[in-house]
Design a protein around this nucleic acid. Structure first.
Lengths: 356, 356
DNA sequence: TCGCTTTAGGCAAGGCTCCTTCCTAAAATG
DNA sequence: CATTTTAGGAAGGAGCCTTGCCTAAAGCGA
């Protein structure tokens, strides 16, 4: 809206940004190479590198070019560029990674969720990959996340897989900057390359849906967009029923909980038709409200139900393509890592802008 | 993502943008005043104004200051800044306005929809407010709009109020720039100030819903987000039923059409409970999928049903505030006008950036 | 009436950024 | 060992923004 003030400082900070981003891609480069990458002139690059070196943002690596011609000096990002923490929290286990500005995973720890709860385990794995404080953290959690606070929230009639957890508070002394927490289904959707408007349906012990509109996951006011358990749909008997109650009616809940009994569901093919109809009812609401180009289906029983679901949806007046999820290996972690990398790089550029 | 190239030209174009935006607000100003408004120094402003004058973007109005001190020269936007066309199309009538870069409505025409169709009437009203070609047009239409083409689309089992219309094609020879078309409900939602995440439910002859996420109306892949007629909900008899079929079941459709019989609906209070329940079912899907802070309700029978609807929703496990719409006087036109003004101003700044 | 104040605008100098062009140093090549 | 190749530096120039000062002209007040 309001234009930026036209000052010479703006130009030099733009040059710095060019240099830094080029170094993030190249890992190390001489000033002549940077001039080639960025399109800036050699004197401009030299001056910018001089300033950045003075501020500690980049350093002379000590390496020298060995080829024809004069010996060049390699520069790289300084140690102050720091690292980002990436954590994936799920009942099946925790994964923590430390990522540097080059996108390299410099440390990785996997752990089980102990019976004492996820909080201690989170602190442990984060500490294990730490090496000095992180500049920021990105957390994926298999439960609904409050958008404001980053805390996990329990919703009625939904399985609460990880339990109460205030990840920003737990990680506060390990992370200097922001701690971003989001639901694993939202992260998994971000890993998909399915266009600017699509929905991602996750079918596992819990049910999840991510809405991607105009290229971004839309979390809603409190971060609870996509919590579809309470959406009205068609029950096995044809009556209007909330989606979560369909599983109860079909006897597909794990005893004493609201979690879905996945093995039983996969074994009992006869319930698939009723499930497909119920899910199609939910998707009719998705189609009506967010109008996705397609619906990607993932999760432990996503592939099993997909054909039946696709058939039912195809017969509705507003058919939408039903596609299998394409990223199946740690999808949430993959997307969280990419987000952490982008945020880390932005933070480095912003910090350099501050300190010069 | 990719930073802008640091060039001196960037600075001068930024200065020009400051000057132009200040003139859009002030209508006319001396260079000294512009220096005060923008925070730029007097020589910078003088130089920028000189360049903009040469390019025709601003002109000496001929007026002179009359106060103490030296006589100043007033500058204003040049005639090439042009106008934007704003049109509202509804069965109740057409409104066309011409808006200049100051936000003033310089011409306005109201017309009825003739039995021959809306296309000719659109051309007529647009021509009547035209005075040379428009730089862009913004159209609000009371029917679903295809996001790609801007054409009105007919959906099965929905009233098609205006009929087929390709507004961009009809206006092509009156408008030099883009023609933006959107649904009137989406425009009405943009006129509300209800936070960054909310939904707008329009209840009239047709049913409409607008979804605002992260501060923007989200239109979906084809522009059909919010077409809620086919969402499954609770029918009068408790069975799962599409929302549009609820009106059929209650005998609230105008004979031979899929349009809602609003007078009959307003007269028959006994059907309100069933309607409220059906709408609440749809809102449960809205809450689940887009998680709005609140739902604003507008339209001819919005106020009538609001208390009953609010009661039913309050009793659900995921209650959401139900609020009346705040803008009731030409809400769609108001928002379309604001959008046109913003786009016109951006276009002027962009054009100046090109031509200097 | 006349000097003072006030105000728009111009001018000059200085600082900074970027660029192009040219030069230098040093390593590999033949 | 001369030539080629390449990183880096130096010089000069152009453009933009700023501060500070000056000028012109209109109103104000004695």
């Amino acid at each position: 809206m309001a234009p930026v003030k036209p000052t010479l400082e703006l130009l030099s900070s733009l040059s710095s940004e060019h240099i830094l981003r080029a170094l993030m891609q190249a890992e190390r480069a001489t000033r002549a190479e940077l001039a080639g990458f960025t399109g800036l002139s050699k004197p401009t690059v030299s001056e910018s590198v001089r300033r950045l070196s003075e501020a500690g943002a980049v350093i002379d690596t000590g390496e020298r070019t060995t080829g024809r011609g004069r010996v060049g000096t390699y520069y790289a990002l300084g140690p102050t560029s720091g690292r980002a923490l990436v954590v994936s929290l799920a009942p099946s286990g925790l994964v923590a990674e430390a990522v540097d500005a080059y996108g390299d995973v410099v440390a990785r720890v996997v752990a089980d969720v102990p019976p004492t709860g996820v909080e201690g385990a989170l602190r442990d794995v984060a500490a294990q990959v730490a090496e000095g404080p992180f500049r920021l953290a990105v957390v994926s959690a298999a439960d609904p996340v409050d958008r404001e606070t980053g805390r996990l929230v329990e919703l009625p009639d939904l399985p609460f897989l990880l339990g109460a957890l205030d990840a920003p508070a737990v990680l506060a002394d390990l992370v200097d900057g922001p701690v971003v927490v989001d639901n694993d289904v939202n992260w998994a959707a971000r890993a998909e390359d399915a266009g600017r408007d699509f929905a991602y349906l996750y079918l596992g012990e819990g049910l999840g849906l991510a809405v991607v509109s105009d290229g971004e996951v839309r979390r809603g006011h409190a971060g609870l967009a996509g919590e579809i358990a309470h959406v009205l749909t068609t029950g096995p008997d044809g009556s209007a029923m909330r989606l979560t109650d369909v599983f109860a009616a079909l006897g597909l809940r794990r005893a004493g909980t609201t979690a879905i009994d996945v093995p039983k569901l996969l074994a009992g093919l006869e319930s698939h038709a009723a499930l497909a109809r119920a899910l199609a009812g939910v998707l009719s609401a998705v189609v009506a409200l967010v109008n996705p180009r397609a619906v990607r289906v993932g999760g432990p029983w996503g592939a099993a139900i997909l054909p039946a679901l696709a058939d039912v949806v195809a017969a509705t007046p507003r058919a939408v393509p039903i596609e299998p999820a394409t990223v199946t290996d740690e999808p949430a972690l993959t997307a969280a890592r990419a987000s952490a990398l982008e945020q880390l790089r932005d933070a480095i550029v912003a910090a350099a802008r501050q300190r010069t």
